[in-house]
Amino acid sequence: MSAPVNAQEGLAGFTSVIDVYEHRIGHVCRAVSSHLPPLLKDFPTSGGVVLDNACGTGAASTTLLKHFPNASIYAADIVPPMVSSFKAIISQNAELQNHVKEVRLEDAQSLTFADDMFDASITNFGIFFFPNPELGAAQIFRTLKPGGTAVVTAWKSFGFRPILWEVQDLIKPENPLTQLPLMEPWCDLALLESTLKAGGFKTVELTVVKEGLWGKDKEDFTLVLLENLGAFVSQSWTEAERAGLPAMISKVVDEQQDKFCVTDGAKLGCMMEAWVAVATK
């Protein structure tokens, strides 16, 4: 099964926003990753070996070490700025230096790690970027030890999407509502389950995790939305229409905060939901 849309285009767009990744979406991906280590119920606490697959800036590695301080971690990502960013983070963190054995620039569809190498494999919001997700799933399966556990996440719902639609309706109501063609098909749990089974896994357990996409205050959340929505608006928009985004986002947040947003102290945000799939070899 091929990816629903051109995943290479998605990766190219992802690379282009690497400088604002953590602020735009990375912090909620990191928050979801904090739910994953407890799902590795059979992980050897004495010191198992983990693959942080499509590792990004290493969120899964960082959170995993909080639960399994004796783990040895290998990481891989196909996006060079992500690999460079994670290596820079490691250089400033003694714990990561001790436990992250290697960070490789690799295609998750053709990993060069040995067969049966890992006690656990985590792919946190990476599988929808694979041009052929089933090949990626087969590589996860191949590199796991028998009895090893894979954890794979994908988005179930996007709390910012209703805001996107409201803003789009204000600026360009005649346009079709903007969709998220790369990630949206994965909202259907059947795609994630069938992809992992096609890769070799017999059973897949799915749960849902909720975390907030946050700004530190209303102004900061408006910027978070601008960073996200600006990447998704129709390419047919004029420069003037694009220029209207900041004001319209602020207007929607001001006037409809109770409808679209959640708060946590001074923070303002919206809730995101993620599928978490757990499969054992």
Results as ranks from 00 to 15, higher is better:
Phe160Cys: 10
Glu239Gly: 15
Ser33His: 03
Ser121Met: 01
Leu144Ser: 12
Phe113Met: 04
Phe118His: 03
Ile90Ser: 05
Ile90Glu: 04
Ser84Trp: 02
Gly13Cys: 08
Pro69Asp: 14
Val83Met: 01
Ile73Ser: 07
Gly13Pro: 07
Lys87Asn: 14
Pro37Cys: 13
Ala120Phe: 04
Ala88Gly: 14
Gly56Thr: 11
Glu193Ala: 11
Asp115Val: 08
Ser91Gln: 12
Trp165Met: 06
Lys216Arg: 10
Ile25Asn: 05
Val17Ala: 10
Lys218Met: 05
Ser46Trp: 04
Ala154Pro: 00
Pro4Tyr: 01
Thr62Leu: 10
Gly10Ile: 05
Trp186Leu: 05
Ser85Glu: 15
Leu65Gln: 12
Ala60Phe: 05
Pro4Gln: 05
Gly126Pro: 02
Gln235Ala: 11
Val79Ala: 15
Leu164Asn: 11
Leu213Tyr: 05
Lys216His: 10
Glu205Gln: 10
Thr263Tyr: 04
Glu166Phe: 01
Glu166Ile: 03
Tyr21Ser: 06
Thr15Val: 15
Glu227Lys: 09
Ala114His: 07
Gly215Cys: 07
Phe160Leu: 11
Leu180Asp: 13
Glu134Ser: 14
Thr112Pro: 00
Gln235Thr: 13
Phe201Thr: 13
Asp264Thr: 08
Ala274Arg: 03
Gly126His: 03
Val83Lys: 00
Tyr74Ile: 03
Leu164Thr: 14
Ile73Arg: 00
Thr112Asp: 05
Ala137Ile: 03
Thr263Arg: 12
Asp107Ile: 12
Val253Phe: 00
Lys202Leu: 08
Val5Gly: 03
Phe118Gln: 04
Leu144Lys: 07
Ile25Lys: 02
Ala138Met: 09
Lys281Thr: 09
Ala114Thr: 08
Ala138Ile: 09
Gly56Ile: 02
Met117Tyr: 06
Phe130Ser: 12
Gly244Leu: 01
Gln8Val: 14
Gly126Tyr: 01
Gly10Trp: 00
Val204Gly: 07
